[in-house]
């Protein structure tokens, strides 16, 4: 429960935030804190400085473009996404956010924090990968935007480097999406997840089977083809107390089919 000593800054502008982050290798952005504070409680990680992003209005809000593109500020909370009429342009977003943990966590946890943490048990990395989301990263040198394949690099590791911040996530238009997961009890810790999007070609992302979401494009939405596509990725998922590698590999196939089926229905 007891954190190591830490300095705390609450910048009022993005530039100020980037400056503090750049000045100190040990500084970390504090978004909703629903993962980071717990990591600090366990002293599994102890930043020197926390840079609280809650004062940065630039990082908040949801905008729906005329072409149906959604732009979500990195500091948008799950609850805001669930409640947002704009976000309903891509209904799966709110549906999956509503399955994250519980009300309290959804009230503080943010889409940017979820993505940047890239804990394999998080729902949003595979979902965002399946939806073809693009991630805008700001640094003192300017901005860059990367797709999911370049954003998620490892467990707790993304393309957001030292001195940088994820500012927004852009999701293209589309409606035919699906998501399926096996969790410990309802909405508990995730064992395996799968997200699918059928807008144009089929795009599938598997969660909890590797350090990053595993993205694949099955040749068809036929269940056998989907299963084969999952098998072809030669997954080597981790074994842990909740699932053996074999069980995860099997669930990946089952859930991939279910996510595709939901996408077909939607």
């Amino acid at each position: 429960m007891l954190l190591r000593e830490v300095a705390y800054a609450k910048p009022e502008s993005l530039a100020e935030a980037l400056e503090i982050l750049a000045a100190d290798d040990g500084a970390r952005a504090l978004a909703g804190g629903q993962t980071l504070i717990n990591v600090m409680k366990a002293r599994a990680g102890s930043p020197d400085t926390l840079v609280d992003l809650s004062g940065l209005d630039d990082l908040k809000g949801i905008e729906l473009g005329a072409d149906g593109t959604l732009e979500l500020g990195a500091m948008t909370t799950y609850s805001e996404i669930i409640a947002s009429s704009e976000a309903r342009a891509r209904p799966i977003l709110g549906e999956v956010c509503a399955q994250i943990a519980d009300v309290q966590v959804r009230n503080r946890g943010t889409i940017g924090g979820n993505a940047c943490t890239n804990d394999p048990t998080n729902h949003l990395p595979p979902l965002l990968a399946a939806l073809g989301a693009r991630f805008t990263i700001a640094g003192r040198g300017g901005e860059q935007t990367v797709p999911a394949e370049e954003f998620f690099l490892g467990v707790y590791l993304t393309a957001v480097g030292t001195g940088e911040l994820l500012t927004k996530i852009t999701i293209p238009a589309g409606r035919n999406d699906g998501f399926a997961a096996v969790t410990l009890g309802v909405d508990g810790t995730c064992v395996v997840s799968a997200a699918a999007s059928l807008n144009g070609s089929a795009r599938l992302a598997l969660g909890c089977v590797d350090a990053v979401p595993v993205v694949l494009s099955p040749s068809s939405t036929d269940p056998d083809a989907v299963r084969q596509a999952v098998r072809d990725t030669a997954l080597d998922p981790p074994s842990d107390v909740h699932a053996s590698s074999d069980y995860r590999r099997h669930l990946a196939e089952v859930l991939a089919v279910r996510a595709i089926e939901q996408a077909q229905r939607s």
């Binding site: 429960m1 705390y8 804190g33 629903q34 504070i37 717990n38 409680k41 366990a42 926390l50 519980d102 009300v103 309290q104 966590v105 009230n107 503080r108």
Partner: peptide, 23 residues
Amino acid sequence: DTGNCGACSVIVDGTLVKSCMLL
């Protein structure tokens, strides 16, 4: 000590939060 139990839940500026995951 992991933000799971909710025994510390309070309302901050009208929003329900777990006060163990907030400084």
